[in-house]
Computed example of a mutant assay.
Amino acid sequence: MNKPANHDERMAKMTFGSVYPHYVIKVEKKGRSKAELHEVITWLTGFDDEKIESLINDKVTFEQFFEQANLHPNAPSIKGMICGYRIEEIDNPLTQKVRYLDKLVDELAKGRKMEKILRTE
């Protein structure tokens, strides 16, 4: 799939807080909880609940969000398609990290077991 020329730049400048409510709605609509969403975000980034709220309130961009993150060593094992892109083939590191998060949220919403989402199995 071809992406628009400014796709990576738009992704970098998008605020985490503008997308976060959509994550919450997506998982809650499918019977999962905000606590489970935070567990997934914490696994990927190392952020606790307080830090997640702080990042939302500070209106950080995804670029700032992932600059502060301590990405989980198993994050590269997140593979597959999300939003029409194969995650492991994304060449921009920041865009790939955002898609890691999108994929984890998607797996949570689809009812996947937490052990599989967190790559502990």
Rank of each mutant, 00 (worst) to 15 (best):
G31T: 12
K34R: 13
A75L: 14
V27G: 07
D58T: 12
M11Y: 07
D48C: 11
I87F: 00
I41Q: 06
M11T: 15
E88N: 07
K29C: 14
H22Q: 09
H38C: 13
E63L: 12
S54A: 04
K3N: 13
E9Q: 11
K79L: 00
G46D: 04
A5M: 10
H72F: 06
S54E: 09
G17V: 01
G46I: 01
D58Y: 05
Q96W: 05
G46H: 06
V105I: 15
T95G: 15
I82D: 05
D102N: 07
D58P: 08
R119D: 11
Y20R: 09
D58W: 08
R119S: 08
V98M: 10
K59G: 11
D106K: 00
A69F: 01
K26V: 01
K30E: 03
K34L: 06
R32G: 02
N70K: 02
F66R: 14
L37W: 03
R10S: 11
R86A: 00
A35R: 07
T42P: 01
E36D: 11
D58C: 14
D102R: 05
A12M: 09
D102I: 02
K34F: 01
Q64R: 11
E67W: 06
R10V: 11
R86K: 02
D48K: 14
T45R: 02
K51T: 08
I25L: 07
Y85M: 12
I117D: 06
I25Y: 08
N2V: 08
K79V: 04
M11S: 12
R119N: 14
N2D: 10
P76Y: 07
L55A: 06
Q64G: 08
Y85H: 05
K59E: 14
V105P: 15
Y85C: 11
F66Q: 12
T15G: 08
K97G: 10
A69E: 09
I82H: 04
C83K: 13
E115A: 13
L94T: 10
L101I: 08
E89M: 08
E50T: 06
F65M: 13
E50P: 01
V19R: 00
R86E: 02
D91Q: 08
R112Q: 13
G80W: 14
V24N: 07
F66T: 15
K34A: 00
D48H: 10
K103P: 12
V27C: 12
T120Y: 12
T45K: 05
G31S: 08
L101S: 02
E39V: 04
G17N: 00
I52W: 04
M114R: 15
G46F: 07
K116P: 00
M14L: 08
T15Q: 15
D8I: 09
V24C: 01
F16R: 05
Q68Y: 04
K29W: 14
M81E: 02
K51H: 11
M11N: 05
E88T: 05
H72G: 11
I117W: 10
K116N: 09
Y20I: 01
E50G: 06
G46Y: 09
H22R: 07
V98N: 06
I52R: 04
T42H: 12
V19N: 00
W43Y: 14
H22V: 03
F16E: 05
I87L: 09
M114I: 15
H38P: 09
N57D: 14
L94R: 15
A109T: 03
K110C: 13
Y20E: 11
K97D: 04
F16D: 04
V60D: 13
Y23S: 06
